[in-house]
Nucleic acid binder design. Structure first.
Lengths: 205, 205
DNA sequence: TGCAACCTTGCAGTCACTGCAGAGTTGGTG
DNA sequence: CACCAACTCTGCAGTGACTGCAAGGTTGCA
C-alpha cells in the first residue's frame, strides 16, 4: 500500500505539471514517505508513474500454457489474452491517463516499451513451452507471433483510448487479432469489419 | 565525425567493462572531447552506446510512400524494408555487439525499444500516407501492420545474431515476413520453410 | 580587418540514484 | 517481561547524469 500511495502521487503530480517538472522528493512528500523510501519501491521516477505490475500478467502466461495443445498458437494466445486481460473501466480510466502522458513524453515512452517487453518475454516463454521441448529453438516463429500480438494489443489500447466511439475494448481487440490472423490482407473498406458471432468464440467452438 | 568518435568509444568501453561501469567522463576522454561536448551529441549515455540514427531510416519511409499504390500494404512495406535495410556484414558485426549488450542490460533495452518505436512512427506515417487522406484515421490496421513488421524485424535480427548458421539475414527476414503474411498459420514442421525462388523477388517480378 | 556562424569548453548547479548503517515497529519465544 | 529476529522506514554521504549559460577558438566570407 505504500507502493500504491507512491505511484498514485507520482501519476497525479505528473499529470498536473508534466513528468519532467516533478522531482522524486515531491512525489515522496506527497506520498508521506522519505525520498529514500521511494527508491525502495521503484528504481526510477518513471517506473513510479507507470507502475507496471507483472504479477497479474503471469496469469496470462499460465493460461497460454494450459490451452489445449491442438490449438493453433495464435488462437491460444488470443483466447488467453482476451480472457485474462479483461480491462474493466476503472483500469481503463487510470490507464488512459497514463497513456496520455506516455504519448507526450519520450522518457516515459522508453520505460513503457521496456515494461511491455518484459511482459512479452513472459508470453514468449509460455508459447515456446507449448510448442514442446523438441521444437527448434532458433525458429523465429514464436517470437514474431508474440511480438505481433503485443503490438496489436498496444494498438488496440491506443485505438480504444483515443476515440471513444462506444466500441468496447473487447471489440477492438478482436478486430486487431483478426487482422493478424488474416495475414494483413487488404480490406475492401476501412470501417471495422463486422465479426461473425462464431468467429468471436472460434477457439472454444 | 565527432559524433562517431563518441559513439565508437562508448560502445567499445561498454563492451569492455559493462555499460554500468562506464562513466560519461570516461567516454568523453576516450573520444578526446570534453564531457560537456558529449551531451551536445547524445542526450544520455545509453543513446551514445546504441547510436541509433534515424536519418538512414527515412529512406525506408520514402520507399514505402513510392511503392505502387495497388500493392497490398504488407507487400509494400516488406519490399521497402528489405530493399533499404540491406545490412552489410560490417553493419551486422557492430550491430551484433550492440545486441549482445542490449540483451543483458535493462536500461539499454529501454532505450533500444524507444529508438525502434521512433522508427516505427516513421513507417506508420508512410503507410498511412499510402492509404490516402480518406482513410479512417481510427482504423488500427496500419498501426498493427507496422508494429508487427517491426517486431518481425527485431526477431529476425536476433535470430540472425544468435545462431550464425550460414543463413543470410535476407533469408531470415523473408521467413519472418512469410509468417506475417500467412496469418501465423501453424507450420507442419519447425525447420525453416524453404522459400521458392520466385517468392523471394515476388513484388519485383 | 571585421563579422557571423559554428563547435567546443568550463563552471555551477540540480537532481536521480545507491550503499550503508541506524532507528522504529511488529510478532513470536523463552 | 525480556529477548530476539524480521521487516520497514529513514538519514546521510557520495557518485554521476544532465542542463543552462557564457566565454573562447576556429572557419569562412565580405
Amino acid at each position: 500500500m505504500t507502493r500504491d500511495r507512491i505511484s498514485e502521487a507520482a501519476l497525479r503530480l505528473a499529470l498536473e505539471r508534466g513528468p519532467d517538472a516533478v522531482t522524486v522528493e515531491e512525489i515522496a512528500d506527497a506520498a508521506d514517505v522519505s525520498p529514500r523510501t521511494f527508491f525502495n519501491y521503484f528504481p526510477t521516477k518513471w517506473d513510479a508513474i507507470i507502475d507496471f505490475d507483472l504479477e497479474g500478467h503471469e496469469e496470462v502466461a499460465d493460461a497460454i500454457r494450459s490451452r489445449p495443445t491442438h490449438e493453433p498458437p495464435l488462437v491460444a494466445v488470443r483466447e488467453a489474452v482476451l480472457e485474462h486481460l479483461g480491462f474493466d473501466d476503472g483500469d481503463l480510466h487510470a490507464q488512459a491517463a497514463r497513456m496520455q502522458l506516455v504519448e507526450q513524453h519520450e522518457g516515459l515512452q522508453r520505460v513503457f516499451h521496456g515494461c511491455f517487453a518484459a511482459f512479452e518475454q513472459l508470453l514468449l516463454d509460455a508459447v515456446v513451452a507449448r510448442l514442446g521441448p523438441d521444437h527448434d529453438p532458433r525458429d523465429p516463429y514464436p517470437a514474431v507471433l508474440v511480438s505481433s500480438v503485443m503490438s496489436a494489443m498496444r494498438a488496440a489500447v491506443h485505438r480504444h483510448m483515443e476515440s471513444p466511439d462506444g466500441r468496447s475494448f473487447a471489440e477492438v481487440a478482436h478486430e486487431v487479432f483478426d487482422i493478424l490472423a488474416g495475414g494483413f490482407a487488404p480490406r475492401s473498406a476501412s470501417p471495422p469489419a463486422p465479426r461473425s458471432p462464431e468467429a468471436a468464440g472460434s477457439a472454444r467452438a
